[in-house]
Simulated assay, not measured.
Amino acid sequence: MAGAILITGANGTLAIPAVEYLFRTYPKYTAILTVRDDSDNYPTTRKLRETISRYPEVDASIRKLDLTSLSSVHDFATTLSDEIIAKRVPPLKAILCNACYWNLVGDPETTSDGYDKTFQINHISQVALVLRLLDNFALDGGRIVMFSSEAHSPGRAILEKFPPVIPEDLNLLVRPVANVDKAGAGFHRYGNSKLAITAWTYAFNRFLEKDPSLKRITAVTYNPGSLVDSRLFDRNVATSTRLLVQYIVQPLLPLARHQYPQMRLASESAADAIELALDHVHPGERYYLELLEKDESSPESRDEVKQERLWIKSLEWAKINKTNTALQNAFE
């Protein structure tokens, strides 16, 4: 077997066409597809299962993974690691941290771990998953794709009202205060989570490069574009926003792209994400990418002092220590 590809949020708008592209183009890979709800009662999981059924020759499994629960993440990582050690699943070739969440209509939501739900799903749990699984990659390495967004960079996103920021008190990221402007505050939490994962990945790569046994693993932050058909617009947004996207932005996408070239359909970014994950694009590099072009992330995300502070705090939030990750130099 060629190796395993792990995708979080595998029933998402970008993920389902990415899975289909993987099956159609690279059927020798084993696909480990994680979702919050693995039942057929959930329409997008049913759609994912239908996609898998069209490719009977592919080794694929849908796994339940609740990113709002760190115990679920750690249990999942332990189980998958045991399967790889027992050779029931091939070593990892790539992880695509695709799952994401926002709430633009409500106050901050708190998970059972005590963290903001948006920040835990988009950052903390993805960090925990990746760091737990590093020693389960193939000997020749692999690639980790962390999903960023233009929302991480102040002044770029149309929905931004409050610019994203890494605050002096990092605990404000996991316990944000409520705001009467629920849409603005909700998008601010989303932007902060994307800024955090972008900044964190720089520090992550520095630690990987210093580790002789892990330096063949590369991480990239990937902005797939503003996906106008994203399922994010189907829930936790104002009705006016959903209707604007559905009946104006989507039909006028060819025209809108002239002013906002980042606007795309998810299917357009899906193939790019797979090619990037398999190291076929910018092989061996550790870039920040806008679509598939090397670019500069926001100035704040490139601040090494903030990256290091966020790295240390993220280990604490994600419950990562010397006993449960192969990245030992992260604690020196």
Score class of each variant (00 low, 15 high):
Gly3Ser: 08
Ala4Asn: 02
Ile5His: 01
Ala18Cys: 08
Ala18Leu: 06
Leu22His: 07
Arg24Asn: 13
Thr25Pro: 07
Pro27Ser: 12
Pro27Met: 10
Thr34Tyr: 07
Asp40Ile: 14
Tyr42Lys: 14
Thr45Lys: 04
Lys47Asn: 08
Ser53Gly: 07
Glu57Arg: 11
Asp59Ile: 13
Ser61Val: 15
Arg63Met: 11
Arg63Gln: 14
Leu67Trp: 01
Ser72Met: 04
Ser72Ile: 05
Ser72Leu: 03
Val73Arg: 04
His74Cys: 11
Asp75Gly: 14
Asp75Met: 08
Arg88Thr: 08
Pro90Phe: 06
Leu92Lys: 01
Ala94Leu: 11
Asn98Phe: 06
Cys100Trp: 03
Leu104Gln: 01
Leu104Ile: 04
Thr111Ala: 05
Asp113Thr: 04
Gly114Asn: 02
Tyr115Lys: 05
Asp116Tyr: 06
Gln120Pro: 05
Asn122Pro: 00
Asn122Gly: 00
His123Ala: 02
Ile124Pro: 00
Ser125Glu: 06
Arg132Met: 06
Leu134Ile: 12
Asp135Ala: 12
Phe137His: 01
Ala138Tyr: 02
Ala138Cys: 11
Arg143Pro: 12
Val145Ala: 04
Pro154Cys: 13
Gly155Ser: 09
Arg156Lys: 14
Arg156Leu: 15
Ala157Tyr: 07
Ile158Pro: 03
Glu160Pro: 06
Lys161Trp: 05
Phe162Asn: 03
Pro163His: 10
Pro164Ile: 09
Val165Leu: 11
Pro167Thr: 01
Glu168Ile: 09
Arg175Ile: 09
Val177Thr: 12
Val177Met: 10
Asn179Asp: 14
Asp181Pro: 04
Ala183Leu: 15
Ala185Leu: 07
Arg189Ile: 10
Asn192Arg: 11
Lys194Ser: 06
Leu195Asn: 05
Ala196Trp: 06
Thr201Ala: 12
Ala203Tyr: 09
Phe204Cys: 07
Arg206Ser: 14
Leu208Gly: 00
Glu209Pro: 00
Glu209Asp: 13
Gly225Ser: 03
Leu227Thr: 13
Leu227His: 04
Ser230Tyr: 11
Arg235Phe: 06
Arg235Trp: 04
Asn236Trp: 12
Val237Gly: 03
Val237Glu: 01
Ala238Met: 12
Thr239Cys: 04
Ser240Ala: 13
Arg242Leu: 01
Leu243Gln: 08
Leu244Asp: 01
Tyr247Ile: 10
Ile248Cys: 10
Pro251Asn: 04
Pro251Cys: 06
Leu253His: 06
Pro254Ala: 01
Leu255Arg: 02
Leu255His: 02
Arg257Gln: 14
Arg257Ala: 05
Gln259Ile: 12
Tyr260Asp: 09
Gln262Ala: 14
Met263Asp: 01
Arg264Cys: 11
Glu268Asp: 10
Ser269Ile: 15
Ala270Pro: 08
Asp272Val: 12
Ile274Trp: 09
Leu278Ala: 02
Leu278His: 03
Val281Leu: 15
His282Phe: 08
Pro283Thr: 09
Gly284Tyr: 12
Gly284Leu: 13
Glu285Ala: 13
Glu285Met: 13
Leu289Lys: 09
Leu291Tyr: 10
Ser298Leu: 10
Glu300Gln: 12
Ser301Glu: 07
Arg302Ser: 09
Val305Phe: 08
Val305Asp: 10
Lys306Phe: 01
Gln307Leu: 03
Ile320Gly: 01
Thr323His: 15
Ala326His: 02
Leu327Asp: 03
Leu327Gly: 03
Asn329Asp: 08
Phe331Leu: 09
